[in-house]
Simulated scan of single mutants.
Amino acid sequence: MTTNNGVTIDFLKNINSPFDKKLGLRVVEVERGKAVIELNIKQEFLNSNGIIHGGLTASLCDTAMGASAMTLGVNPLTVEMKVNYLSPGGTDGKFIAVGRVIKEGRTLIFAESEIYYNDKLIAKSIGTYIVKQPREIVG
Rank of each mutant, 00 (worst) to 15 (best):
F95N: 04
K34L: 15
T128P: 03
P76S: 12
S48W: 10
E112F: 07
I51N: 11
I15F: 04
L46K: 11
L77N: 06
I102Y: 07
E114M: 06
F45N: 04
V83L: 10
L77Y: 09
P88R: 08
V36D: 10
N49K: 13
I109N: 01
F110W: 01
I52K: 01
V79Q: 12
K42E: 14
A69F: 02
R32K: 15
T107K: 07
N14S: 15
P18N: 03
K132M: 14
S113I: 08
K34F: 07
K124N: 11
K132F: 04
R106S: 15
P88F: 01
Y85Q: 09
T78G: 10
G93Q: 04
S113Q: 02
V36A: 09
L25G: 03
K34N: 01
A67Q: 11
S17P: 06
G73W: 11
K132D: 05
F95C: 04
I51L: 10
A35S: 14
G90P: 13
A67R: 05
L39N: 02
K22D: 00
G105M: 00
G105L: 00
P76R: 08
P88Y: 04
V27Q: 02
I126S: 13
L108T: 04
K124T: 11
G89C: 11
L86Q: 11
Y85L: 15
V74A: 05
T128L: 10
L23S: 09
D20H: 03
N75K: 13
V28A: 01
I15S: 09
F19Q: 12
V101T: 07
I41S: 08
A111E: 04
M70Y: 10
K34C: 13
V83I: 15
I41M: 09
A64N: 04
Y129K: 01
Y116V: 07
I115F: 08
N16G: 01
T71L: 12
I41T: 10
K94D: 06
F95W: 06
E80P: 01
L56E: 03
G90Q: 13
L86D: 11
E44S: 07
K124Q: 14
M70Q: 13
K34V: 14
Q43E: 15
D119L: 00
L86V: 09
T63W: 00
Q43R: 12
T91V: 14
K82R: 09
P88E: 08
T63E: 07
T107L: 02
T107D: 07
I115N: 03
P18C: 03
A67W: 05
K124W: 02
P18T: 07
S68Q: 05
V98T: 14
E112V: 05
Y85W: 07
S59F: 02
V36R: 13
V28Q: 04
M70N: 05
K94Q: 12
V79D: 06
L23K: 05
K21I: 15
L46V: 06
G99S: 12
G99Q: 12
I130E: 04
E114V: 02
G93H: 06
K13P: 00
V74E: 09
G33P: 04
S125I: 13
L23M: 15
L46Y: 08
Y117M: 07
Y116R: 05
V83D: 03
F45I: 00
K94E: 11
I115L: 14
L39V: 08
R106Y: 09
L25T: 14
F45T: 01
L108I: 14
M65L: 01
E29H: 13
L121W: 11
K94F: 11
M65S: 02
I37D: 08
I37Y: 05
A67F: 14
I15R: 09
R106W: 04
